[in-house]
Write a protein that binds this DNA or RNA. Structure first.
Lengths: 138, 138
DNA sequence: GTCACCCATCGACAGACGTCGAATCAGAGG
DNA sequence: CCTCTGATTCGACGTCTGTCGATGGGTGAC
């Protein structure tokens, strides 16, 4: 299950710009990361770039996953226990399944503390996606 | 086939900030549009918001579609004929199928001029997606 | 230990999705 | 008119995916 790690490193090459929250995020050596993806308007994506980038968008392409992600992202303290976000209209196994997908896409990280499992947003991957969308909103 | 229109209007409520390209884009009356989606970190998305927003991400969640979109977005003049972007490794009907999906998601618009059909990026929807991702990359 | 609780995994199923070839539609030009 | 070319639609097929109930694994309390 090394998907999470590979997606996380995928991003870090994408940070052409400065990040103000470098204190919070672990700093990875650039040479260990594979390049992720330029803005979609810059040049046509290669097949591999598209394959890699599509996984991130696909992870947010399901309504339930999007709600779960939003619940974690907006939760107090930046993290949420599974029991806090299980009320999205699907069964508990399904919630677990979607959280796993989000984890595999590198969008969330999980940590067990005692009885509960806490999920937390991986900001770097979000930033990579935003960068891929380009500067339309500037 | 009113999907394109509804997605386009979905965005325009999202423009809390000024837009410099209002000359290019049609200006829609805000009261005719349904709100799209706040940043994912601001508050949990409702079911309808998630449903609507997920469609946009889903559209970019396929490698072939992502490449097609990138080909249009990066093409000279901001638009591309289908014949210019049909070399992505799938058959021509499949290309047409994916372009239709991107159109229905509001990400592309198409226009027939003589023999050829030209596709063009809809910048507003991209902006809405970027805004939904929040300010991680700022 | 035993029980209760939280969460993940398993197995199965229906529906959605990507893909193709064939057919069809739309213009341009004989 | 007919034909050629570009693009979409149709019908079919295999695969992927979201969902569930049942089961299992881990942790804390009694």
């Amino acid at each position: 299950m090394g998907d999470t790690a590979s997606m996380a490193t995928c991003f870090d090459m994408c940070q052409h710009r400065h990040m103000s929250n470098s204190k919070v995020l672990p700093v990875l050596a650039p040479e260990t990361a594979t390049p992720c993806c330029p803005p979609l308007t810059e040049r046509p994506l290669t097949a591999e770039e598209a394959e890699r980038t599509a996984k991130m968008f696909k992870a947010l392409g399901d309504p339930v996953r999007l709600r779960l992600f939003s619940l974690v992202a907006s939760h107090e303290g930046g993290e949420a226990c599974v029991c806090d976000i299980s009320d999205v209209g699907v069964s508990q196994p399904t919630v677990s399944h979607h959280l796993k997908k989000l984890r595999e896409a590198g969008l969330l990280t999980s940590e067990r503390r005692g009885t509960w499992v806490y999920y937390r947003v991986e900001p770097s991957v979000l930033a990579a996606m935003g960068q891929t969308l380009g500067r339309y909103s500037a």
